[in-house]
Amino acid sequence: MTPDRKLRVLVAKPGLDGHDRGARVIAYGLRDAGFEVIYTGLRQSPEQIAREAIQEDVDAVGLSILSGAHMSLTGRVLDLLREQGAEDIPVLVGGLIPDQDREALCELGVAGVFTAGTPISEVADFIQSHAGA
């Protein structure tokens, strides 16, 4: 690792859900923790997210979903990353995720699930430890 190395994270809101409080807070928080955060705003399609993750060569992708559509949207992002040979990029999911779906998300290949009340430092540490830096 060189001194210039910065961890890069894509924070995205897939689907139509417009509640972006969590995504914005995480974006600010990771920036202040020294990350370079690529924030892409609302209504991102899984295709856009996968492409952005690859072009930006991020160390992690954070998806924020509160609409209940987390299973299908996350699954699609993971599939697309896999198809493009980028399954090594860890995908984190935050938002309103019922307990019973946590495990299912992890089985799909999600690296971590973070719900309301998680301190940003915990997310930052998680990304750091998964980035292989």
Binding site: G15, L16, D17, R43, G68, A69, S72, L73, R76
Partner: peptide
């Protein structure tokens, strides 16, 4: 649902998984 709120139809390609959800 968000599809209607955002002015799409249920068969729009970018709404998969959202139909009738919220």
């Amino acid at each position: 649902d968000l599809v209607t709120q955002c002015g799409y139809d249920s068969d729009s390609p970018n709404v998969v998984g959202e139909v009738g959800r919220v």
